[in-house]
Design a protein around this nucleic acid. Structure first.
Lengths: 146, 146
DNA sequence: CGTAACTCATTACCCAACCTAAATACCACC
DNA sequence: GGTGGTATTTAGGTTGGGTAATGAGTTACG
């Protein structure tokens, strides 16, 4: 762990990251790609799309949410027909959560909407700034999952 | 607005940014630098430290929060002795909000705590990744303020 | 075996941090 | 001097999480 990391620049960057993330998070809550679907619900669908299927507990750990919250989220997604719940083959305590074809379609649609939002944001940033964001995105994701 | 911006990489980056920001935001809510001070309150103090003083309305606009929310936040900060409220010299509808010496001290203390948090996170990222974060931090901040 | 300890999911309840709508006080302009 | 617009506040509601306690199922151990 080099001391380079603890210089003033990094301290300022962390401070800046902190406030920017909180602020952006607040705004993203409102500018949703899909109305009637909270950011966490969206995120769960994304995770399921990547992982195929998972148990509620696994999802809770991946989204850094407590199990009861994930229970509620999964129930909402099921009510919207975006997710299917099946008994776990080996362990009758657990359940298998997997996405439906409808969720697949919704994700595709959300991708186009996201492009529209992207175009809107593009007005405010130049190509160099976008490049920095693209480079940082995977790092932020890694950071978010610790 | 070049078409470069609308390629698949950027769409993926936006998607990745979205979930990472929401996730990080959720976690930052819990890992606060100072207990008993919400992220937004912290952010308001930071803004005041930069700007000197402002009216509640100005603060609401800068933090992208509705005026009633800022009223409450300012009231809480005042109750904690971190902020001072004075009548506006020119307009008796408005108020001037400025930070107290106590807030100054608290911000200094929070900076050291932030460094501790930073050291903890540093374990998970290499220098190259930090460099990307440092580069992206100001862009994220710009993005957050639209 | 059988029972004790643990784990997964859930239920019930709570709380923080926002929001909108409406009220109040004030300014500014014709 | 009334009228429309703006700054803040009050009142009340919603949302997206959290904690504590319960029930059902599994595992380990005497």
């Amino acid at each position: 762990m080099p001391d380079l990391i603890h210089d003033g620049d990094s301290a300022a960057a962390v401070s800046s990251l902190r406030s920017a993330v909180m602020l952006l998070g607040r705004r993203l809550k409102h500018q949703r790609v899909d109305e009637s679907l909270s950011p966490t619900e969206m995120s769960v669908l994304g995770t399921l799309a990547r992982c195929g299927s998972a148990t509620p507990g696994e999802l809770a750990r991946k989204e850094h949410v407590q199990p009861p919250s994930m229970t509620r989220i999964v129930a909402l997604l099921e009510a919207k027909g975006l997710v299917r719940l099946e008994p776990h083959p080996d362990d009758r305590r657990q359940k298998r959560v997997s996405q439906t074809e409808q969720a697949e379609a919704m994700l595709a649609e959300s991708r186009t909407k996201r492009n529209a939002w992207l175009s809107h944001l593009a007005e405010g940033l130049d190509e160099d700034e976008w490049e920095k964001l693209r480079a940082a995105a995977p790092v932020l994701e890694k950071l978010a999952h610790l």
